[in-house]
Design a protein around this nucleic acid. Structure first.
Length: 797
DNA sequence: AGACCTAGTATTTTT
DNA sequence: TACTAGGTCT
């Protein structure tokens, strides 16, 4: 790492990433944890709530806890479930666990809510009343499915806007409501429920499930099947949930289904970072959890290892304006650092120009472009910035565009593959039946859909019912798909895809298309993705997406006979429970992939505040801090909305490690009109002492200061390094060597009983004979050092 | 089938 | 402004 300016001193150890793996012995794992982290990691096996502030090492706590429990023999890998929201977070956990544990992460249920549901339903497809190779609809598939229904039911799509209907369906499912459970108030909702009902029937007929269905099916199956529920409750001794503040009602209820009397659930979250209420997240789940899971003590992780003091002061002060918080204050030992810089621009254009200049300077002074991030409230704001960066010739990367598996050509290819796997997938059928064109027009398709509806069969099964030219074209299409299915039998995944790309005519189509080159590249990339998925490495690394439980057999064994054996029906020939193609298709729906493949480039990062959550950068620019934009005008009318905007701002601020810039503009082009804005109210909620205005305050309009902003590089700010702020080893890591067993017959990880403090877990053992001491985590009573010659510790089994 | 035109609409988003 | 969906015309 290079460093010239003090500002660019070697990075503080990132949360959990300190140095080499600490050796595969229990106490080594705990080295470098601060007291609160240590307490959380070694908590007795009871449900616990961890309030983890931004940058407080939450992922480290989560992974270390799992590793520690396993290494001390309190838990087997098969007894763990760790749930996250994103594939990225799940992968991160697996990677870290892999580094910490000598044993591979086999059999551990680490994944996203949806990924784990998929895994569960694959194992119990029969009980869940699903076809064995059921496929998953992504949001756009779902939308087109709803559109078809609205059309079929002859409804006015202005009264029943497909997108809104989609929300209604997903929303109902997330409340755990089937069509029969939904409250019907008026005509509108009555019809909505009918659409919901029809949608369900259609999905069931086609053998597909949407995201919410994955959750709901799993929940219902566990709720209704006592034997199965008890089996899983016994199996998972420890369940850990990341980003708990983002869970919705269904996810909470789902979690309860997995939780038995012996299950310890550790919920980790931060109410101040709850920014997804708009899509159903219930922050209230945190307090509900505390109450309903009998949490005895809440551990707060408030030590921040990411940012300098001024940045944290700004964050703390801002968020203190919210009510109904669980209460938390971030602190650092890194010193105040530089002030937060504030810039007022005359126009969005000059704001962009200022940013480009500033970023260029940072880069010249040694900061990697990828360590510089520009955040905005809404995607539309990126445009001006992009054009400024483009003109300046600075590489940048915008997050949030189309993801790989969502690109049109990729979706087309996937539709062909799905049809090979399941000809009754009408969504896929309609997507590609006339792409490339095969003389199958709207009229023909109407006839086909009518016929299918009348007979209750799939489109593919109904092609013979359509007369004339259209009918024979349809039959030719079905024959094409059938031929592909035949021809690809026994081929590997790569060969299947290549065959399909040629036979479908997709490749030829894009070859003649003038802008087809990129698309062909994407299709080649699809082949690569499949290859990567299949290879040993891909399967191993990608265990998140691995649809089949490696221990499916083991599950079956442990289950009561009545529910077990029927569910895992391997292919008679190959013995596979699921074909590689089906597995790959599942992977494609569950993980949309990166949004831009241009990896390797050192580029400035542009994204919304929402997508910045969980990330961190040396320098962060929060732009467009204007009333109406941030906070957004649609949110300011009610208190809840405003508080969520404030949390959003809090998330944005806490992304910054070393330097934070806030900017706003007097005017801005929005929807083709110039808007005159006043600065965000959030400026009034920041501590003046932590700010430095780069432009004069209370600047009136039109005073034309154009570019006379003072360079942010005003004289060396003489910062010390942030080194030392890292997870400095507290006193719990004695050099006396790993003592895991002693003459007392106690070992680390063991549960013990103390007459005064009750039940606890042994965290450290050191010294011998009369000198022997033990560190014990008594949960509610805290962490204690006890002299073994005095304290009476009784081992519990 | 495909080019062309018009009107309507514009937070935040993962799975 | 800039995109989409949908309609109409060739």
């Amino acid at each position: 790492m290079t460093a010239s300016l003090p500002l660019f001193s070697p990075d503080a150890p990132e949360e959990g990433a300190t140095g080499a793996p600490s050796g595969h012995e229990p106490q080594g794992l705990l080295r470098g944890l601060n007291p609160e982290q240590l307490a959380a990691v070694t908590l007795p096996a009871k449900s616990a709530l961890i309030l983890a502030g931004a940058g407080s090492g939450k992922t480290r706590v989560l992974t270390t806890r799992i590793a520690w429990l396993i290494q001390t023999g309190q838990l087997t890998p098969g007894g763990v479930m760790a749930v996250t929201f994103t594939n990225k977070a799940a992968k991160e956990m697996l990677t870290r666990l892999g580094a910490m544990l000598p044993v591979p992460v086999r059999g551990m249920w680490v994944g996203t809510f949806h990924g784990l549901c998929n895994r569960f339903l694959r194992a119990h497809w029969k009980l869940a009343n699903l076809p064995q190779g059921f496929q998953i609809l992504d949001s756009s598939d779902q939308l087109s499915a709803v559109k078809r229904i609205i059309k079929a039911m002859n409804l006015d799509d202005e009264r029943f806007v497909p997108k809104q209907v989609t929300w209604f369906i997903a929303g109902s499912k997330e409340e755990g409501l089937r069509p029969k459970d939904v409250d019907v108030r008026d005509e509108q909702s009555r019809v909505m429920v009918q659409v919901y009902q029809a949608y369900e029937e259609q999905c069931q007929r086609e053998g597909v499930v949407d995201f919410a269905e994955l959750m709901l099916r799993t929940y219902e199956l566990l709720r209704d099947n006592v034997a199965l529920r008890e089996h899983y409750q016994r199996r998972f001794r420890h369940i850990l949930v990341d980003e708990f503040q983002d869970t919705n009602r269904l996810q909470y209820a789902w979690l309860k289904m997995f939780t038995g009397p012996q299950t310890a659930v550790m919920a980790v979250g931060d109410d101040d970072q709850s920014i997804y209420a708009f899509r159903g997240a219930q922050v209230g789940n945190m307090t509900a959890f505390e109450r309903e899971f009998g949490v005895e003590q809440v551990i707060k992780l408030e030590r921040n290892y990411r940012s300098y003091g001024n940045i944290l002061d700004a964050a703390n002060e801002l968020i203190s304006h919210n009510t109904n918080r669980l209460g938390k204050n971030l602190s650092t030992e890194a010193g105040p650092g530089e002030p937060v810089r504030v810039f007022e621009a005359t126009s969005d254009f000059s704001e962009a120009q200022w940013f480009v200049d500033e970023a260029r300077q940072l880069h010249r002074d040694g900061m990697a472009r990828s360590d510089i991030a520009l955040l905005y409230r809404s995607n539309a704001q990126s445009r001006v910035i992009e054009s400024a960066l483009f003109n300046a010739g600075m590489p940048y990367k915008v997050y949030g565009g189309l993801r790989f598996f969502e690109r049109a050509e990729v979706k087309h290819a996937l539709s062909y593959l799905r049809l090979i796997e399941n000809p009754n997938d009408d969504t896929s059928f309609l997507r590609v039946v006339n792409f490339p064109t095969r003389g199958i027009g709207t009229r023909t398709l109407e006839l086909l859909q009518d016929a299918a509806r009348a007979s209750g069969r799939s489109l593919s099964q109904s092609v013979t019912a359509v007369p004339g030219k259209g009918g024979s074209n349809l039959q030719a299409f079905v024959a094409l798909i059938d031929a592909m299915r035949e021809a690809t039998k026994g081929l590997n995944l790569r060969q299947i895809i290549e065959h399909m790309l040629h036979e479908s005519g997709l490749l030829d189509f894009y070859k003649t298309d003038k802008e087809g080159q990129d698309r062909i590249e994407n299709l080649e990339e699809l082949v690569n993705a499949a290859e990567a998925f299949v290879t040993q490495e891909g399967f191993g690394k990608d265990a998140v997406a691995l649809p089949i439980d490696e221990h499916a057999g083991a599950i079956a064994e442990g289950l009561p006979k009545a529910v077990a054996s029927v569910d895992l029906t391997p292919d008679a020939e190959t013995g596979e429970i699921m074909s590689p193609l089906a597995a790959f298709l599942t992977h494609a729906s569950l993980e949309a992939g990166d949004n831009q493949a241009q990896a390797g480039q050192d580029a400035i990062q542009l994204m919304t505040v929402h997508s910045a959550k969980g990330l961190e950068f040396d320098a962060v620019f929060i732009t467009g801090l204007e009333e109406g934009l941030f906070p957004h005008e649609n949110s300011v009318s009610d208190v809840d909305g405003l508080e969520e905007e404030r949390r959003l701002m809090y998330v944005a601020i806490t992304r910054a490690r070393k330097r934070l810039y806030l900017s706003f503009s007097q005017t801005r082009m929005l929807h083709g009109q110039t808007r005159y804005n006043i600065k965000s109210r959030f400026f009034d909620e920041l501590p003046e002492s932590a700010l430095r205005w780069l432009t004069p305050r209370n600047q009136g309009f039109g005073s034309g200061f154009a570019r006379e902003y003072q360079s942010a590089w005003a004289k060396g700010s003489g910062l010390g390094s942030i080194v030392g702020a890292g997870n400095v080893a507290p006193r719990n890591a004695p050099a006396s060597g790993p003592v895991t067993k002693s003459s007392h017959g106690l070992r680390v990880g063991q549960s013990v009983f103390h007459t005064r403090f009750g039940e606890g877990v042994l965290v450290t053992l050191e010294g011998t004979g009369d000198d022997a001491r033990a560190q014990v985590n008594f949960g509610r009573h805290g962490m204690k050092w006890l002299a073994l010659s005095v304290a009476k510790l009784t081992p519990i089994e």
